[in-house]
Amino acid sequence: MNLKEAFQAQNKLNSLMAYVVRYLNDEDNVMTVTEKHLRSKALAGQQDESVDVSERSEEGFDVAGLLTIWQKLMKEKESLGAAIGKAKAGMDFNLDAAVDANKSKRMFLSTLQEMAGRKSSHRLQKGEGRGYVFNNDGNQTSYCYDIDRIMTIDYDRNKVRDLAKKLHSEAEEISLKIDEALLHTQVDYQLEFDLSGEDRLIIEEMLES
């Protein structure tokens, strides 16, 4: 398998393990609830009865079986992770660092694009200012006036655009390199399980095998 397929398998293993954990975390799935109807104590001659009122999920998976399956999935995940690590070590560049750097560049690109689109502006706020003066009689009186709210950009938009163009070019170049590496770097590993299909169906098949 190539790196892309290996990462997809990793994600699927994580999904399956999370599925098992969610199932086991549900108290209804791991406990039997029995109600004992003590009729004989209330009325002589009546028969007591035990009723199973458990509310398990419709899957009704065997708990012990799920514990074993989680351990198998964990072992598979660790083995696959080791194989992926070995494959990445043989590459001519650091894949993880490249992915992380590209993520940062693309996040900053959105900021630069927003900055490049900003313009200086002003807005007249009519009558929103209030001042006080003394009239001829010496009394303090208020008056209203207009406020011109001026917003001026504090940077050179051309420089911002140039930087955005540079980062976009770099990000595209690195993305292409990453995509090629994912497709052409081989991972020396054979999956033990068939990971195609819905999580529930895979778990069912593993329990039956």
Rank of each mutant, 00 (worst) to 15 (best):
G197I: 04
V187W: 03
A82M: 14
V53K: 08
E128A: 10
D188F: 01
R161F: 05
H122E: 07
S50R: 11
D100F: 14
E205M: 10
N102G: 06
N11C: 08
V33H: 15
I147E: 00
K119A: 08
E180W: 13
L38H: 14
M91D: 04
K4V: 08
A87M: 01
D154P: 09
A87N: 00
N2R: 03
D137P: 00
K72W: 06
Y132D: 13
M115N: 03
Q125P: 12
V53T: 13
I147N: 04
R56K: 14
R200Q: 08
L191D: 09
L112G: 04
N2H: 02
D188Q: 14
K88V: 05
R157G: 04
L109W: 02
D62H: 07
S40V: 03
K88L: 06
M151Q: 15
G129P: 00
E78Y: 06
S209R: 13
T152F: 01
A9I: 01
M151G: 08
E5M: 09
N29T: 01
L43T: 13
G131K: 07
L73N: 03
Q8H: 12
L38S: 13
K165L: 11
S196N: 13
A42K: 12
G81V: 04
E76Q: 01
A6S: 01
A98Y: 01
N139H: 12
Q125E: 11
A64H: 05
Q186D: 14
D62C: 07
A97N: 06
L207H: 08
K36M: 14
E128W: 09
D100M: 06
T32I: 09
S104K: 14
K72G: 09
E58N: 11
Y19V: 02
D48G: 01
M91A: 11
G60V: 03
K4N: 08
A98P: 07
E198S: 13
G90P: 01
D199C: 11
L109A: 05
T152E: 14
F7K: 03
D179S: 12
L38P: 07
Q125M: 10
